[in-house]
């Protein structure tokens, strides 16, 4: 392979390239927010909530690890529409499996949803049903978590949902449109 050295002029031009660029002003807070959702360690070394940072295993809520608070604003401020991905079934109570699941879902949220992620939560089984015609609660037929995403259209939302790791675990994902009230 022949050498292809830079000329002095080329070296000067490369040298003029900026090696550092100011990061967007909200990026630091977004990263910190993402880390705040890190999973607690079994043996925290301090009483500070920041020990969770050191543990740094991502929790299911990591959905939020993408931490795009800017997407949580007014719908009118953002391109696309919001869609709710409701997760049904396929829960686990084994701690090891739960931890692995959490990491897997978190990685999916960060890498596949990325900036499309608005919010996500895991739901507990605690519920209160009100109203005269309220249905009898059926834990097997209620969502146990959700991802709120912003997508260009429903087709994109469905494509995203189809990649959700919940499906690989035998769960069900339902995509619902958010009615964006002006």
């Amino acid at each position: 392979m022949p050498d292809e050295p830079l000329t002095p002029r080329e070296r000067d031009t490369f040298a003029a390239l900026p090696r550092e660029v100011s990061v967007p002003p909200d990026l630091e807070d977004r990263v910190v927010k993402a880390l705040q959702y890190a999973r607690p360690s079994p043996a925290p070394r301090t009483g500070s909530r920041w020990w969770r940072l050191a543990a740094a295993v991502v929790l299911i809520s990591v959905g939020f690890a993408a931490g795009r608070a800017d997407f949580a604003g007014s719908p009118a401020d953002q391109p696309g529409r919001r869609y709710l991905l409701l997760l049904y079934g396929s829960t686990t109570s084994a701690p090891d499996e739960e931890e692995a699941r959490v990491a897997e879902y978190g990685a999916w949220a960060r890498t596949t949803l990325g900036r499309r992620l608005v919010a996500a939560e895991k739901l507990t089984n605690t519920r209160l049903v009100l109203g005269p015609d309220a249905p009898v609660p059926d834990p097997g037929r209620e969502p146990n978590g959700f991802f709120l995403v912003r997508a260009a259209d429903r087709a994109e939302a469905e494509r995203l949902a189809a990649t959700c790791p919940h499906l690989r675990h035998g769960g069900t994902v339902v995509v619902r449109d958010i009615d964006e009230v002006p």
Binding site: R19, S22, V23, L27, E28, V31, W50
Partner: peptide, 21 residues
Amino acid sequence: LAGDEDAFRQVFRRHSPRLYA
């Protein structure tokens, strides 16, 4: 690693301009 958020922010600020570029 001992739980100091501000320390993380310091590390972030030292390295992120280069990482972002």
